[in-house]
Nucleic acid binder design. Sequence first.
DNA 1: TACTTTCGATACGCAACAGTAGCGTAGCGG
DNA 2: CCGCTACGCTACTGTTGCGTATCGAAAGTA
Lengths: 204, 204
Amino acid sequence: MADAAQAPESSDMIRYPAMGRPRDSRRDQAILDATLSLLTEVGYEQLSMEAVAGRSEVAKTTIYRRYRDKAALVAAAVRHRSPATPAQPAGKSLREDLLSLVKWLARSIAEQEVGLLGALFAGMRNDARLAQEMRQILRRDETAMTDGLLRQAAEPLAPGAAALFAEVAPAVILHRIVVAGKPCDAAFVAHLVDDILLPLMRNT
Amino acid sequence: MADAAQAPESSDMIRYPAMGRPRDSRRDQAILDATLSLLTEVGYEQLSMEAVAGRSEVAKTTIYRRYRDKAALVAAAVRHRSPATPAQPAGKSLREDLLSLVKWLARSIAEQEVGLLGALFAGMRNDARLAQEMRQILRRDETAMTDGLLRQAAEPLAPGAAALFAEVAPAVILHRIVVAGKPCDAAFVAHLVDDILLPLMRNT
DNA sequence: TACTTTCGATACGCAACAGTAGCGTAGCGG
DNA sequence: CCGCTACGCTACTGTTGCGTATCGAAAGTA
């Protein structure tokens, strides 16, 4: 049992053998970290196994001993990604809660999720399974966030309000970053909260 | 003057010489059409010059005679794209107008813009100029749409209402298609109009 | 110690693709 | 007719990148 916990063995990972020299778990970690960071930086197509090997300071053979091919490696890295939960603010007022939540969300999307989304766009044509996996990951973050909002809100919220928030806030932020190409500064965050989110959530 | 009109010569195009056999404009058209359709199908990275040559039934040399490289070809194709304006509905009620407009917008995004956005994601890292060009194209469609809405609306609209529509509607549609991975069916269109857009625009 | 497996290093084989070059032919203008 | 260019075709160079093979050394286990 304890041994099994030390060898996580995601479903994409090639089975760990019982005999001989054991694998180095620090190399497991280094490979996944390098894959994830490169994925967000350059996207799926531009991600090369050689680059992963270089950044993780590991021989290419060491990667292929663990993962069958590039798709399996990327899937494992995405699955391995830590959830990234927002700091829960002490709910003083609904507006303050939303402001801090949207500010965190904008940072999170700009820094990480845009890269993942690029990979999603590119990969969804070639590998539907990988695309589905990424959608799951992205949704996991968003639901974790709205759950916290619903639990700690300063005002009692209608059940549909949190769902509306989850539907609208990430969408508008993403659209601004990618399509408009403008930064999500403090003015934009305030605009999103005051002109869009608060009217919607109070109206429900 | 008339001759200049027949030879559009976009800025990415290699200059058309004054002597010798003239270029065939049908080949110009076929090259740009093939490039654009392939771009929306497979994205920028996966777009190969060989595929463009094959689909347009043109030799690869004929492409390189016109465009310096792949980036110039794609930029010219994107710039050449026709605006795709929505059918303007006879404004019976604001809700009807919004329903038909959102329905058209959802179809348009699902069929074309997702592919262009994929190219945008991929290209924005390698070629900032190309990314800027694509943003311009995408915005051109959206502003054309909101202008029509503001002009023909059944109810008088606040000046901020059309801007809110342009900011929220494409964002939520895109988010649903890409992140949620669900189709924009009639139920979703009604939900978007009744639960999000109408409350927002009436409140302004 | 014998056996098994990991790990790094390097070199491959293979395919895809960008971009170029040369050749022969087809059109257009002077 | 002559000069110029477009066009298709084929072949070619150079690069990139996936995935494999091999070898020797290291590190566990029986």
